[in-house]
Structures are given as C-alpha cells and as structure tokens.
C-alpha cells in the first residue's frame, strides 16, 4: 500500500470534501475557507464540473447494446441461449432508458451513498435560519443555471416567479449526497429551502418537525425537495428542467 496523500494538505481536504468524507465540523470549516478563498472555490467548482462531465460521458446509457457473442464450439446451444437472454435484457434496458423518467431510479447507476455524517433537511434548515439564512454563494442567473448543469447535467429554469418569491443564492447542502445543492429563497419573507439532488438518490428521509413541511418533485434526473413552514409548495410549481445531454456547445 502506497498510502494516501498528506492529510494536512488543502488538496487532500478538497479530495475528502468532494468524496463527502469530511466530518460535519471539517466540512463547515472547509466551506468557510472556500467562501473566503475564491481560488479554492474555483478549484472545487472545477472538480465538481469535471466529475459531472465524467459521469455524463461514461454513463451506462452511453454503452452500445450488447452484441451476440460468436458461437462457442463446445456448447453452441447454451451460448445461443445466454446470448438471447442478454439481448433480451439489453432490449429491456434500451426500453427502460427511453422511458426511464416513467420508471423512476436507474438500475444501472449506484445510488449516491448516504453518509453517517449527513445532516437532515430539518437540521440544515434550522441551522440556516439560525445563521441568518445567508446562502453560501450569491450568484447570477447564469451561474445559477451553470451550477446545476455542471453538477447534474440538467439545467434548472425558474419560470415567472411571483413577486413574493425571492431567490437569494446557493449552498452546498450535502444532505444525502455529496452533490446535493441547497437553494435559498424567501416567500413573503419566510425562509424556504430547496434541496436538489440526483433522482436516483435513495434512503429514508427523516420526518420534519411539527409545523414544517417537505414537498418533493422528480424532474428529469433531479429530485427537488422544498422545505418550509408553508403547507403547500411555493416554488416547486415554478421550476422546470432542461436536459443538457446532446448539447452542441450552445451552453
């Protein structure tokens, strides 16, 4: 075993951060450092973008359907049988990929792992409100779209938000996955958080406290939760997603 990199280096912390392997305290400290250091933030964003690009480029859906193997000399009957089974399985896979939005989570991709250090949405919400409800990152509309495109390969579009809804920025939630992004918003000055994560995310969600509500929508390859004290969703109905795959450099 050659051993891992120097634990003290920023590079190593960045690696652990990207892998969602920092403790909540270490993560908070790292995010604080990131907020104070544009160079570090740029490296993290670049790393996230590279990871998203790799996931997109080498997704199982990019594999060609399986070809029929050459007949075996020893037992051609058995080989034909297995080839037929594989072809059938692949056909089902192709059908699945075409209609995967209808069927739910992908069976090919491993669901993002839950970590023992993950916070609940309620805890994140409480901490955010206690901290003044300041987003980790105030961004422009273009940066907002780029964030979801680079992390999930899917653009989020906010359609005609009512005047009482204000989006203030983004945060790195890491609630259930390392990729989860939080969107800070206010509706009638009441704090509302959106948590955006891959649609394949699995795991039980902790119930909200009394007086708090969580609404969710699956949109394309995203699962979006809205957490607030409003019994009805305030923002989810104004969100639409645009798939980025197959883009031709138009951004």
């Amino acid at each position: 075993m050659t051993g891992g990199p120097d634990k003290k280096s920023v590079e190593h912390l960045l690696a652990l951060y990207v892998d969602n392997e920092l403790t909540p305290e270490e993560r908070a400290e790292f995010e604080k450092a990131m907020n104070a250091d544009p160079a570090l933030r740029a490296e993290v964003e670049l790393q996230n973008r590279i990871d998203a690009s790799l996931r997109e480029l080498f997704d199982a859906s990019n594999m060609s359907p399986i070809k029929t193997p050459a007949p075996a000399r020893r037992n051609p009957q058995l080989l034909r049988r297995v080839a037929a089974i594989l072809l059938f399985a692949v056909s089902m896979g192709v059908v699945y990929w075409q209609f995967r939005g209808e069927f739910g989570p992908s069976p090919f991709a491993d669901p993002p792992a839950l970590t023992s250090s993950a916070r609940t949405m309620q805890a994140y919400y409480d901490e955010a409100v206690a901290g003044g409800f300041e987003p980790g990152w105030v961004c422009s509309g273009e940066q907002f779209e780029n964030t979801f495109r680079s992390r999930f390969g899917q653009r989020i579009v906010l359609d005609d938000l009512p005047n009482n809804v204000k989006i203030s920025g983004l945060g790195y939630a890491k609630i259930r996955t390392a990729q989860t992004v939080s969107v800070y918003a206010r509706v009638d000055d009441q704090p509302v958080l959106l948590f955006v994560e891959p649609a394949i995310t699995t795991g039980t969600l902790t119930p909200m406290k009394e007086g708090f509500y969580r609404h969710e929508r699956t949109m394309g390859r995203l699962l979006i939760h809205e957490v607030s004290q409003f019994p009805e969703p305030q923002i989810l109905d104004h969100i639409s997603v645009v798939k980025c795959k197959g883009r031709t450099g138009d951004g």
Binding site: R41, A42, E142, Q143, S150, R247, G249, G251
Partner: peptide, 12 residues
C-alpha cells in the same frame, strides 16, 4: 475571476 465558461461540449 474563477467563473465557469458556458461551453459544456468543449469542456467535455
């Protein structure tokens, strides 16, 4: 300034 340019295809 550390912002990400939009051309995703080129980036890929």
């Amino acid at each position: 300034v550390g912002g990400i340019l939009p051309n995703q295809k080129e980036f890929d």
